[in-house]
Amino acid sequence: MASSAFFEETVRFANDHDICTVHDFAYGAISFDGVKHPSFMQTKGAKENGIEIYTLSKTYNMAGWRVGFAVGNRSVIKHLNVLQDHQYVSLFGAVQRAATTALTSSQAGVTELQQMYEKRRNVLVQEAKRIGWAQQAPKGSFFAWFKVPNGMSETEFATQLLHEAHVAVAPGNGFGEHGRGYVRIGLVNDETKIKEAMSRIQALNLF
């Protein structure tokens, strides 16, 4: 999760090298331990340097609705609008109306959602520790990146989990070379399922 200090460094670096920064803020609302993720746009110079992309998918459980927005640098916003003029005629107006409701009415539901993911995170970390797979707790988003047991590749580990424990996790190499050695675990299941998944993994005696 990016910090304000990192954002300041990014603006400095980006301006020095004539680089447009694009901050993907999809998980902006899903932060844990009392910390609120800062927006890149809060950093001095960020709005002039680049853009931030926000989506309603995670914050409001609207993944299927296809609603997001870009904010920031005027030239980039203008180019995006020009491109879209040729490809689309904007979102269905009723969806824009519902999205407006989402953004401007009470955000109590978002707080509850964030607390739900935090509880699930705690269960995941606790259960993983219980079975001998102690890992650091993620600070936000609804993913945890856990290291694969020694001697196994992330693909081997994920395949074994899927076929022998019937638990699906995403092998880290799918996200880039530096994801090797890790699997990505989602918190998009209830606590009972998370506990059950860990018990099934425990039965494989890998730790």
Binding site: I53, Y54, T55, S57, A70
Partner: peptide, 20 residues
């Protein structure tokens, strides 16, 4: 001037490349 609607974040990420 500083807000552009996107068809989901995924669509926006592709469009940014196309624009820049």
């Amino acid at each position: 001037e500083e807000v552009c609607i996107l068809f989901g974040g995924k669509g926006g990420l592709v469009e940014v490349s196309q624009c820049l």
